[in-house]
Amino acid sequence: MKNSGIKWHVIVFLAPAVLVYTAIMIFPLFNTLRLALYTEVDQVRQFVGLENFRTLFGDPYWSGQFWNALGNNFWFFFIHMIVQNPIGIALAAILSHPRLRFAALYRTAIFVPTILSFVIVGFAWKLILSPIWGITPDMLKALGLKWLYAPYLGKEEYALTTLALISVWQFVGIPMMLIYAALLSIPEEVLEAGEVDGITGFASFWKIKLPLILPSIGIISILTFVGNFNAFDLIYTTQGALAGPDFSTDILGTFMYRTFFGFQLQLGDPHMGSAIASGMFGIILIGVCIYLFGIQTRLRRYQF
């Protein structure tokens, strides 16, 4: 029976997943890259080669918006890297302490924001930071820090950083959990061997644990990168498709949405939208490649 002709059951097992995945994910992905090479003239689709990209990078109106969105996106990512990951690692390090009581309770509570939708998170923070409601100014006043208050989401210079921090607040649970899992998998013998050599407490974290969890930090970084470069929901919920004030919170996701669907008087343009999507695809691809070939292969993995 074996090796005789086509194994139909293999095809039957694979077919549904491969068909849905190919039709809904892979095909549209390449079709979007292809659509970026077309434009519409008098409601007829015309091939124009790289013209859309020339407009995107060459036309000052478009390129200004593109570089603004890209720069904002990098800042958004930067804030995540320097705030979300250290906090996540610190929380995980504290939680993984072997005799800590209520660890499960803390873990569950700190993960709560991660399960909420952007709509809830966005509006909740918008209300809390709102100068009309006054929760934030009152609380800062109670701490004697009233001078720190500003309408954070309404000021060009603060809005993007504020949104990035809201996003950090929401997602800190993910690095916390992944690092926590990595820390738990470090065998007791390794830590005890360190103790025998007099390495305890902070020193044991820096010298033993941190090098061992570097691969997990790498994974977190690439997950954050991919997540940030196709982010959209939080900005759209709090600032709308125009990503105000004055496009200061515009990132690639909102820029693509605006271009694709149009806003106010500008009509939507699926082909320019595709061009921006292709740009996002390129950036994510570069990021993933840097991770896979540049970082992951250099990190030493320890097998216990």
Partner: peptide, 19 residues
């Protein structure tokens, strides 16, 4: 099949909507 773990499906939105 693993490609899609890293590439977000949102990139293909324009073509998905068209389809």
């Amino acid at each position: 099949l693993a490609l899609g773990i890293m590439i977000p499906i949102r990139i293909g939105t324009v073509a998905i909507l068209e389809m």
